[in-house]
Design a protein around this nucleic acid. Structure first.
Lengths: 223, 223
DNA sequence: TAGCGTGTTGAACAGTCGTTCAGCGGTCGG
DNA sequence: CCGACCGCTGAACGACTGTTCAACACGCTA
């Protein structure tokens, strides 16, 4: 097949993996050591350390978008869980987590991507009758995505400073098992006993609603 | 009163502020510059940079616990919003955010603290009839806390790499205004149209309910 | 006035960082 | 066979890091 893997690809692969394990502050020399090349060669290929990180961003975004076809559930964590099962994508998943942690333009873009997919997913569920319609589907998807990804990100500190890519799938599964109960409860039974708070808010903002995309008064259902 | 503020207190204050603004990787000399002392003096007082961070952790935990009496709402972000209003506490709030971002023992402890308070808050609401009872109040509070703090943390990347402490209150308010609608909707109207998913999960785990390690899909589904 | 102790400094050390660059070994066209 | 190119290395540079340490300035007591 490809007996000698091109060095720039090997560098990118090693960088993705090392940045995922040690965090985005991992040194250039450490990446070079993993890729079994000199530090200078990385500079020669990518121009600078920042450019290498940008290349990792592009790769991560590309892979995530490509493999996202199998997305389901409002919790975007599920996609990660699926992806991480395939150890091939573990470095990318780890890198995305690190990138979300560190911030930067890609983090915002990724969250937006996931939110956009969540919008579609919820719309499908809405048509199928499994998902409740929303006053502002876009905002709902955005908030739910941020909560799902943010909560996942908050699990990271519990890990050691080093992220074990091999245990990533088990880690995801453990986390999913822990939250699935409360999550299903929260999504099935309203946290608030009555709608008084929501109605008060709606009454207070009915005049100058910031972004009412579609006025869809949900059917008067009560619990 | 205290015309000459003791230097170690000034160092701690400057460290808290600088770590909040630049992140926990801010250099010792930068902190020293802010405190208008030499770098060596910080070492002399605190022993090492790591010990200084631990001192910041202790201070942050202390202040947070002390001022947490005015906590309300499942979203712990509300506490932060209130605290950040008082510009006096802005550095501590910023530091806590940075600490949650970077991880470490304090991050876990802080989340646990907030979750414990959320348990109490929800129990109060339950007695008052405003909050729905839960099958596992502790787990529910933990998940809701992690989602609230995590989502807040995910807003950080949108900021510049430098966190502007003076704009922190406005930033909190803006974020709150953005999510309050979807949050109230989510907490008042179930996301899922029916309880079938929850019931299926409960049926599948009724044998060993409290902390199911592995999920067993009840119905045979193809992947 | 002398001595001491505490608080503080600034130079210096050893290490790592990203980056630069002269030059190596190889392959290929002529 | 030769020169030119190309991928690549390893040493070196300057800037930065946390940390050490001798020495200084000061207020205190004797």
């Amino acid at each position: 097949m490809d007996h000698p893997p091109p060095s720039d690809e090997r560098i990118l692969s090693a960088a993705l993996r090392r940045f995922a394990v040690d965090g985005l502050s991992a040194s250039l020399r450490r990446v070079a050591e993993d890729a079994e090349v000199s530090a200078g060669l990385i500079i020669h290929h990518y121009g600078s350390r920042g450019a290498l990180l940008e290349a990792c961003d592009r790769r991560a975004l590309e892979v995530t978008r490509r493999e996202k076809s199998s997305l389901f559930a409002g919790g975007s964590a599920e996609l990660f869980a699926q992806l991480a099962q395939t150890t091939r994508y573990a470095p990318v998943v780890g890198y995305v987590l690190r990138r979300l942690q560190a911030g930067g333009p890609l983090a915002v873009e990724l969250v937006g991507d996931f939110a956009a997919d969540a919008v579609e997913y919820f719309a499908d569920g809405e048509r199928a009758g499994t998902i409740t319609p929303s006053r502002d589907p876009q905002a709902r998807a955005q908030v739910l995505t941020e909560m799902a990804l943010g909560a996942l990100l908050l699990q990271l500190p519990a890990q050691r400073d080093q992220l074990d890519l091999e245990e990533l799938p088990a880690w995801f599964e453990q986390y999913s098992a822990r939250i699935i109960g409360p999550i299903l409860e929260l999504y099935s039974i309203p946290l608030l006993a009555d709608r008084s708070m929501l109605d008060a808010y709606l009454a207070a903002t009915q005049g100058d609603d910031p972004a009412p995309q579609t006025i869809r008064p949900p059917a008067g259902e009560t619990s």
